[in-house]
Write a protein that binds this DNA or RNA. Sequence first.
DNA 1: GTCCCATATAACCGTCCGGTAATATGAACT
DNA 2: AGTTCATATTACCGGACGGTTATATGGGAC
Lengths: 101, 101
Amino acid sequence: MTPYAALAEPHRRQILDLLRGGERSVGDLVERLELSQPGVSKHLKVLREARLVAVRVAGRQRLYALQPEPLAELDAWLEPYRVHWSGRLDALERHLEENPQ
Amino acid sequence: MTPYAALAEPHRRQILDLLRGGERSVGDLVERLELSQPGVSKHLKVLREARLVAVRVAGRQRLYALQPEPLAELDAWLEPYRVHWSGRLDALERHLEENPQ
DNA sequence: GTCCCATATAACCGTCCGGTAATATGAACT
DNA sequence: AGTTCATATTACCGGACGGTTATATGGGAC
């Protein structure tokens, strides 16, 4: 699963957003997402396969942590588009800052 | 359709990439994507509904142009993640540059 | 070992998706 | 008006998706 496809699902984006706050158990996530426990587990499987999260076993819990490296691909894809949308000048300036000469 | 979902499909990303080079007719796109004409038209409909492209009628052609504003939502979502992936320092510096104080 | 608790997996279901072939639409040209 | 070209739309198909309920797995506590 590409990171693009992984992010297409709102619940998965929500999970990643929650994991920005640090490791969370599956139960934690189930409480916060309006979704059944198997539903959450399924999305976590997708995120795992996209390498966007990592699991750590702690007793009988599984703690999930953010692993955002694959998002860099998306960020890179986005880069040439940044000069287009509003705030054009800001984006252009940033682009030039990052690419001297 | 959210911009996230619109980007989940590789052909649609490819179409947007082509449109970065300027307006293109449907036939143009069909030649470049390995995809039937109805297939391209279907993806263009999705991109239109996501407001990622705009159409202009020119004789019997329809010229499609990039309209990347909705990508800003994705860019904004991505922002808090930038500090995480490798190149952490670069990303952090950029973040600080853009958010003085 | 037995009983909980936390999570994963299986089975199932309706819907959406991406593709194609066939057809409709509609402008341009004669 | 009839023909041709460019594109959109329809009809259809198989497979993936996201959700649920039911069940399996496996560690901890007793």
